[in-house]
Design a protein around this nucleic acid. Structure first.
Lengths: 178, 178
DNA sequence: GAAAACTATTTGACATCTAAAGTATCTGGC
DNA sequence: GCCAGATACTTTAGATGTCAAATAGTTTTC
């Protein structure tokens, strides 16, 4: 969850401002940015996780899955959940099984495609999620409260840029090293 | 890993710019920011994870633990690793066990405190980590390449602010709801 | 219309993770 | 010295995650 740093580039002998130095600084920037991004999200994620456990005796993956369903009243197929949650299909199967046992979601047969089904929130799941979502929103708002609104907007914008660039970078091929 | 969105505030009837609207927008901002932060880090984390698996047959937690050790040649105690990696002690025990079996790290008895020991990279662990770290840095730099240097710096700064604010917000008490 | 290729989901083996309980060692106060 | 509590780590049970193989239903192709 932390992806520790590597910074071996000791900047002794500052050198004049040439391409070499520039590239190296840029590397350093990228690594530092990544580590900071990761530690921020881990910090907040852990916080939310503990709250969910402490106040609702539930977990973040369960909450996330239900959150996806809540905004799709017509239900979602397992594969769609997998893509949206950015986890593997097998994982979705497991979480859905548990939520189903708890009566919070239901697998509904899809008449069009008998391989698939739609997962939906049950009424009881909807009620519970409504409560959890309200609490979740309070926690987030409190955590982010101290950060000026302007910073939040800038940050959200920059993260959006980053996401787009990363996705673009990933597309070209799956196995291209270097 | 995704913490799905909740945005129930349909902005029908824009209302004049009063406190109500303002507060609600702010909530929306915080949530959106959080979801974006999380999806960014999940995106990149998954990428790195697959690379580590594909090219070194290892995992992110193993890499992270070794990264922490690499910059502490005198070794780290289990508890220190736990804090730095932001995971529980039991987790560190498991990963260390595996790395030890693979001969990449070693538990060294601490003469001062017989409850504890220092975990260190073995020479073989150092060699392997050096190779992995170089590749890891390339991957990160490539992923972040397209983002302008200026954006990276701004982003890193804002994330630093966020981290500080979140940590401050967390301190007050562990059990204060709302 | 049957074989081949594809797609949706589950299963199995195993690696992470957490929370809570257990074990051993250390420390401070008497 | 001795013992109560703190500290360092491990263990346990169970949830979450991956990957790869298995199952079953769909579509394509000829």
């Amino acid at each position: 969850m932390a992806t520790g740093a590597i910074r071996r580039t000791k900047p002794r002998e500052p050198k004049s401002f040439d391409g070499e130095t520039r590239a190296r600084d840029d590397h350093h920037d990228s690594l530092r940015l990544w580590l900071r991004l990761l530690s921020c999200s881990a910090l907040i994620e852990n916080h939310i996780r503990q709250r969910l456990q402490g106040e609702f005796e539930t977990t973040l993956p369960r909450f996330d899955l239900m959150a996806q369903l809540e905004r799709c009243p017509e239900g979602l197929k397992m594969g769609e959940l997998s893509k949206r949650l950015m986890v593997t299909g097998g994982n979705v199967t497991g979480i859905t099984d548990l939520l189903e046992e708890e009566g919070l979601v239901a697998r509904v047969i899809d008449a069009q495609d008998r391989r698939a089904f739609r997962v939906k929130l049950t009424p009881s799941g909807q009620r519970l999620f409504k409560r959890m979502a309200a609490a979740h929103e309070r926690w987030i708002v409190n955590l982010f409260d101290a950060l000026p609104a302007k910073s939040k907007q800038r940050l959200a914008g920059l993260l959006q840029d980053l996401k787009i660039h990363v996705r673009r970078q990933e597309r070209p091929r799956a196995g291209n090293s270097i």
